[in-house]
Computed example of a mutant assay.
Amino acid sequence: MASSRASSRKEHLVETALRLFNEHGYHATGIDTILKEAGVAKMTLYNHFKSKDDLVVAVLKRREEWFAEQYRQKTLGWEKKPAGRLQVWLEIYEEWFRSADFNGCMFQMGAAEYSDPKGPVFRAIRAHKERTMKQFATLGAEMGLKDPISFGRQLMVILEGAIQGAKLFGPEPAIETMREMVRHLLPYRA
């Protein structure tokens, strides 16, 4: 029972930190603010995380899990062709851009605030982006594209730019441009 309660407190801390980091940024959100919002003692935080960086990494992992879960839910029980799976990814981004809590990419924000390539936060961000790019390259290979690695990189750049566009100019122009740019990638099949 105690481990269940501890796990619940840890989850609550991560969810609270995720919300606050998304709203205010990592450096602008202090540990005391997180603790106050979560309603837990500092000792509870340090029982689960060695440092704020460890909490940030846990938040980023949670965010990555959220995207994976969105994809899993949208593809559950069907075998779409690779192009259909690409459309699912675009729909996930579109829905995210239109959501009330959209405030840009927490990974992009983290890369700007934690720029030391040897630091744990930057390494976690880079690993996430590399996994995402590899996933897109695999999708490109399944679609029979001539250069799936280049496709993965280009799709990644398009989506990263669309995120910034949605944050700066609103979702609809970003979505329209993202879809148009992805259409330009697809004719290059083997």
Score class of each variant (00 low, 15 high):
S7C: 07
S8A: 15
R9P: 04
R9M: 13
K10C: 10
K10M: 13
E15H: 14
R19M: 11
R19W: 05
F21S: 01
Y26S: 04
A28Y: 01
T29E: 04
T29F: 02
G30W: 04
E37T: 09
G39M: 00
G39R: 00
A41Y: 04
M43I: 10
M43V: 13
L45R: 05
Y46Q: 05
Y46F: 14
S51W: 04
S51F: 03
D54Q: 10
L55T: 05
L55H: 07
V59C: 00
V59N: 00
L60C: 02
R62L: 14
E64F: 01
E64S: 11
W66Y: 09
Q70G: 05
Q73Y: 05
K74F: 08
K74Q: 14
T75R: 10
T75L: 12
K81V: 08
A83T: 11
G84I: 03
G84F: 08
L86S: 01
Q87I: 01
W89E: 10
W89C: 04
W89Y: 12
W89K: 08
L90V: 07
Y93R: 09
F97S: 04
D101P: 09
F102C: 06
N103R: 15
G104W: 06
C105N: 08
C105S: 15
F107Y: 14
F107N: 04
Q108E: 13
A111K: 12
E113F: 02
E113Y: 01
Y114M: 12
D116T: 02
P117N: 03
P117Y: 02
F122K: 05
F122H: 11
